[in-house]
Write a protein that binds this DNA or RNA. Structure first.
Lengths: 190, 190
DNA sequence: GACCATACGGACTGGCCACTCCGGTTGTCC
DNA sequence: GGACAACCGGAGTGGCCAGTCCGTATGGTC
């Protein structure tokens, strides 16, 4: 869909595309989604024309950034899930995803708010995460380490909420740990 | 600061001001902060000129809406705090504030993102809430109903996070209850 | 090293939106 | 009920920003 492998892409083109993606990730996360596209182009050392050739729309750029993020998170979560003891896998993943999503919340909000609901390209990685969590939740509930009444949508909402809470806090590790502890303990039964 | 009581305000002017505030609250909450000012004026049955005479800036309007919200929340929270048993007051307030703030999160984000950090007029009601919560937290910790290591900033972050989580969810009361339970139980010791 | 497709840069355009301005209206006070 | 100030409406203005266009540069291939 993104045309990444239609035809090999010339060397400089590929380089610029990567730079744009990196710059966009950086700028969007630190300064919000409202920044003019020109700023991103400049940060990437590229003209706006180049930006819009690679990403037909600002929204498309946002989407590409999100996809990369989500894929990375999904991969990391899958790895952690595989490595953890079944009873702890949910907690471990929850923690990982919450930490990794720092500052990326605004993206999702901007995307869902400004466009049609989550675009097709986002669907794949996000359902991957969703399915992983659904699985982990089910197992944790069977193992008795998660509240039995909790549903997947609720878990996801809590995840987003946690991200927001962490964003609210500074980088102080103690505070972040406390907040995460509240959430992770809250997920456990009674 | 807002010039509400400098001089008595003519009857129609006062009426329009109130209508604008109501319309803005409604429109901002349901359709986001991005809506053109003209929409708000129309929703209030008023011209844009009138809007900008009462609120010199879109941001000022947003601010006024926030102030009203915060004051209402602060008042409600104070009442609930006074009526509840000391051990339960924190939970009760937490729940109340989280529920009442539904959808209003975006405001605060827009304000802090787009302007200088929280404006002077917001400071009063928001510190009122902050102080109330600080007090309740301290008491709950003494009573052993809140984790002793929790600090005020962490509690506030959790509050914002909870609001986000609730916004994420639909209006389904069961789901909202589950999410709140996770949080409230998480706040308790061990 | 020459040729051509592919890619680049950035001035330019069109639309949107916050905010202004002024001729008309309406409340208020005597 | 008349006179004056306070207030209203909404067309108009300026600035900002996403997205286009075309003359120029550059990588790939023979």
């Amino acid at each position: 869909m993104t045309g990444t492998q239609d035809r090999p892409l010339r060397a400089d083109a590929a380089r610029n595309r990567a730079r744009l993606l990196d710059a966009a990730t950086e700028v969007f996360t630190t300064r919000g989604v409202g920044v003019p596209t020109e700023e991103i182009a400049r940060a990437a050392g590229v003209g706006v024309g180049t930006l819009f050739r690679h990403f037909p729309t600002k929204e498309a750029l946002l989407e590409a950034v999100m996809v990369r993020r989500l894929e990375a998170i999904a991969a990391g979560a899958a790895r952690v899930a595989a490595e953890s003891a079944p009873a702890e896998a949910l907690s471990a993943c929850f923690r990982l995803i919450a930490e990794q999503s720092a500052g990326k919340n605004a993206f999702a909000q901007a995307l869902t708010a400004a466009g049609v609901d989550v675009h097709t390209s986002l669907r794949a990685p996000s359902t991957a995460i969703r399915e992983l969590l659904a699985d982990l939740l089910r197992r944790a509930q069977l193992a008795g380490t998660a509240r039995p009444e909790l549903t997947l949508p609720e878990l996801l909402a809590l995840l987003v909420g946690t991200t927001t809470a962490l964003d609210q806090l500074g980088p102080d590790p103690a505070a972040r740990k406390h907040v995460l502890t509240v959430l992770l303990d809250g997920l456990r039964p009674h």
